[in-house]
Structure formats: structure tokens, C-alpha cells
């Protein structure tokens, strides 16, 4: 099963290496990873999607917690949360296929953010399912390049993931 972990970490030299190193060293597979600053200066938030059974994830979390720079680890898959990922897709788009593509993009509430004579860049935000679905739809026009931010997530409601 896939788990989405939120990790609050002191933004110090080497902190991110420590975290990613821990995953590879202990044989845990990172599916994707997103990093950015938080509202607290000096503290970054990593969102890591990792595949594994419950005991494996528990071990991952405990090992992460042992890293001195790590302040908080929580498993957002265990609670109601909003998860999103942003993707840019460069798709082959000759004059004949443009309106078809446009229609797909609209259905998925995406945006066309660049157009050239034979290609378009499409921006979509959404859950993993949605992104897989639009990818599938666009595949047949020819996807030339794709870039994803990795999943980010927040707990639903007023609850927040805090350092302490």
C-alpha cells in the first residue's frame, strides 16, 4: 500500500540527504518526494510517498524520527487529508488534434500554458487517479515530456501537522 508521510525537518545542511539516504540505506522505496518551506522560518516540510506494508511504514517512521533534524513525522494516509500533485505535460499537437486536446484538458480542469506549432504544454493539478487518467487520455496524441512535483498533502479540517 502507498503511504503519504509528512515530515517536518530543520532546514539545516545535509538534512534532506539524511532523510533520502535513510530510505535507500534501509531499502525503503520512495515513490515521490516534495520539499518546501513552512510558515515557521527554518523548518521545511517534506511530503514523501512510500510503498510498503503497515509494519514497514511504522519502521520507516521510527527511523525517520531518530534523525536529530527531524521534528515530526506523520502518516497522512491514515487520516482524512487533501492530496494533490501538479504535472506539466508536453503533448504533440498538430492543428488537427488541438481542439480534441483542448476538450480533454477542460474536462480535467487543466490549463494549456504554452503552445507551439506542433506541441502544447498542459498543466494539471489533482489526485494521483486524475493525473493517471489524463495521462492516459493524452497518451494517444503522443506525450513528449512530463514533469511532476510529487504529491503534497494537508490534513482536512482545522487540524495541523506541527513540530512538537
Amino acid at each position: 500500500m502507498k503511504h503519504v508521510l509528512a515530515i517536518l525537518v530543520e532546514n539545516k545542511a545535509g538534512a534532506l540527504t539524511r532523510i533520502s539516504g535513510l530510505f535507500s540505506r534501509r531499502g525503503f522505496n520512495i515513490e515521490n518526494i516534495a520539499v518546501g518551506e513552512t510558515v515557521t522560518p527554518g523548518i521545511a516540510r517534506m511530503t514523501i510517498t512510500v510503498e510498503g506494508s503497515d509494519p514497514v511504514i511504522e519502521q520507516v517512521m521510527k527511523q525517520l524520527h531518530k534523525l536529530v533534524n527531524v521534528l515530526k513525522v506523520s502518516n497522512l494516509s491514515k487520516e482524512p487529508s487533501v492530496m494533490r500533485e501538479l504535472v506539466l505535460i508536453k503533448v504533440r499537437a498538430e492543428t488537427g488534434s488541438r481542439s480534441d486536446i483542448q476538450q480533454i484538458v477542460e474536462t480535467f480542469r487543466g490549463k494549456v500554458v504554452d503552445v507551439s506549432p506542433d506541441s502544447m504544454i498542459i498543466e494539471v493539478t489533482g489526485t494521483e487517479d486524475k493525473i493517471e487518467a489524463i495521462k492516459m487520455m493524452l497518451d494517444h496524441f503522443g506525450i513528449r515530456e512530463i514533469v511532476r512535483t510529487g504529491k503534497v498533502a494537508l490534513l482536512r479540517g482545522a487540524k495541523i501537522t506541527r513540530e512538537a
Binding site: 545542511a13 545535509g14 540527504t17 539524511r18 539516504g21 535513510l22 536529530v68
Partner: peptide
């Protein structure tokens, strides 16, 4: 050496 010993120390520091 901080990189090399990352997985074999409880923690390490490079003093800048």
C-alpha cells in the same frame, strides 16, 4: 567525512 559517515553516526556536523 560528514557525507561518508552519515549512515554510521548518530549525528554529525560540519562547522561552517
Amino acid at each position: 567525512i560528514t557525507g561518508i559517515t552519515l549512515p554510521i553516526t548518530k549525528h554529525n556536523y560540519l562547522v561552517k
